[in-house]
Simulated scan of single mutants.
Amino acid sequence: MRKLIPLAIAAAAIAVLPSSPASATGAIKCQAGPQSGWKTQDVLKAKLVKEGWTVRKSKVDGGCYEVYGTTPEGDRVEAYFHPVSLEKLYVSRRGEVLFRKPGY
């Protein structure tokens, strides 16, 4: 019985604690305006393929295009691009920053 009381108190304390809301995992935030002014992800993919990238997945994150793929040098990376200009903003490999545009 004595062992159950601390367990019950801990369970009650956890139940009362406020949970934190889920947040975007994006390393970069873009102030790109309304999506109606953005170029499509397909245009970005075509541009990257032309440059020698292999694109596995792309999505919108933090108002930017986030791309998972392989660079022409063979690095498997996570990269962020501005959705209007398609400018490269950030590239990382397993937590190591390979490129970061100043100001981002």
Rank of each mutant, 00 (worst) to 15 (best):
19 S>W: 11
19 S>Q: 15
43 V>K: 07
23 S>A: 13
45 K>E: 12
14 I>W: 11
50 K>I: 02
24 A>W: 08
48 L>K: 05
17 L>V: 15
40 T>C: 00
37 G>Q: 14
40 T>A: 09
29 K>Y: 08
54 T>A: 02
18 P>R: 02
21 P>I: 10
45 K>T: 11
28 I>T: 10
25 T>H: 12
49 V>Y: 00
41 Q>D: 09
45 K>R: 14
56 R>C: 00
36 S>F: 07
16 V>G: 13
28 I>E: 05
17 L>A: 15
57 K>E: 01
49 V>W: 00
35 Q>C: 02
40 T>Q: 04
34 P>S: 10
49 V>G: 03
36 S>K: 14
25 T>G: 14
25 T>S: 10
41 Q>V: 07
30 C>M: 07
21 P>G: 12
17 L>P: 09
54 T>D: 01
47 K>R: 13
48 L>W: 09
29 K>F: 08
28 I>S: 09
16 V>A: 15
34 P>F: 01
53 W>S: 04
19 S>T: 13
15 A>R: 05
53 W>T: 06
41 Q>I: 10
45 K>Q: 07
42 D>K: 09
31 Q>M: 09
43 V>W: 00
56 R>I: 01
41 Q>R: 13
53 W>M: 09
39 K>S: 13
45 K>Y: 05
29 K>R: 14
25 T>P: 00
39 K>N: 11
49 V>P: 00
27 A>I: 06
31 Q>T: 14
36 S>H: 10
27 A>G: 02
56 R>L: 02
24 A>R: 03
42 D>G: 08
49 V>H: 00
36 S>D: 13
15 A>P: 05
42 D>I: 07
38 W>N: 03
32 A>Y: 01
29 K>G: 08
16 V>N: 12
50 K>N: 14
46 A>T: 09
34 P>H: 04
57 K>P: 01
54 T>H: 00
34 P>E: 04
43 V>M: 03
21 P>N: 11
23 S>N: 10
21 P>T: 10
51 E>Y: 02
33 G>A: 03
44 L>F: 04
45 K>N: 09
56 R>D: 04
52 G>V: 10
55 V>D: 05
31 Q>R: 12
30 C>Y: 09
31 Q>F: 14
27 A>N: 10
15 A>K: 05
37 G>D: 12
35 Q>D: 11
35 Q>S: 11
56 R>S: 04
51 E>W: 04
38 W>T: 04
36 S>I: 14
32 A>F: 02
26 G>D: 14
57 K>S: 01
57 K>G: 00
43 V>H: 03
37 G>H: 10
19 S>N: 15
23 S>H: 14
33 G>Q: 03
47 K>V: 07
42 D>F: 04
22 A>E: 13
52 G>C: 10
18 P>Y: 05
46 A>R: 07
22 A>H: 08
50 K>A: 15
39 K>L: 12
25 T>A: 12
16 V>Y: 14
39 K>C: 06
15 A>F: 10
14 I>V: 15
22 A>V: 13
48 L>I: 08
47 K>H: 01
29 K>D: 12
16 V>I: 15
38 W>S: 00
51 E>G: 01
44 L>P: 06
38 W>I: 02
15 A>W: 08
50 K>V: 06
48 L>Q: 07
42 D>V: 06
20 S>A: 15
30 C>A: 05
45 K>P: 02
47 K>C: 09
27 A>M: 15
